[in-house]
């Protein structure tokens, strides 16, 4: 399953809920304001790195770049473009947007 999170982890609980309910081996794609969680020094960084042991973590590159965060991505987070976003949706049989 592909989980999509779009809200900043310091503003909403959606990332926490997603990580709590994503089965091992699932993919988590961070888009829009959620990409801050995937950057070095953020308060969610430890959470993301711990989750990366059981989940595949992706972040949308154009959203990172638009926020000045392109150079700060955590190790273990895969950066994808919109084409990569499309491939993730196609590869997984279902998806859930944690709005």
């Amino acid at each position: 399953m592909l989980h999509i999170v779009n809200k900043s982890a310091t503003e909403r609980s959606s990332l926490d809920s997603c990580l709590r309910l994503a089965t091992k081996g699932s993919a988590v794609l961070l888009i829009e304001d959620a990409v801050y969680a995937a950057t070095k020094g953020s308060s969610a960084a430890a959470k993301i790195q711990a989750a990366a042991a059981g989940l595949k973590i992706y972040a949308l590159g154009p959203d990172l770049a638009a926020r000045g965060m392109a150079g700060r991505v955590l190790d273990g987070v895969n950066v994808v473009d919109y084409g990569g976003f499309v491939e993730l949706v196609a590869e997984h049989r279902n998806c859930q947007s944690w709005l």
Partner: peptide, 18 residues
């Protein structure tokens, strides 16, 4: 439980969140 919820979600064809 969280595990039961995870499994239920995984077996769906379409998930819509509000």
């Amino acid at each position: 439980s969280d595990d039961e919820m995870k499994n239920l979600m995984d077996e769906q064809d379409v998930v819509i969140s509000f």
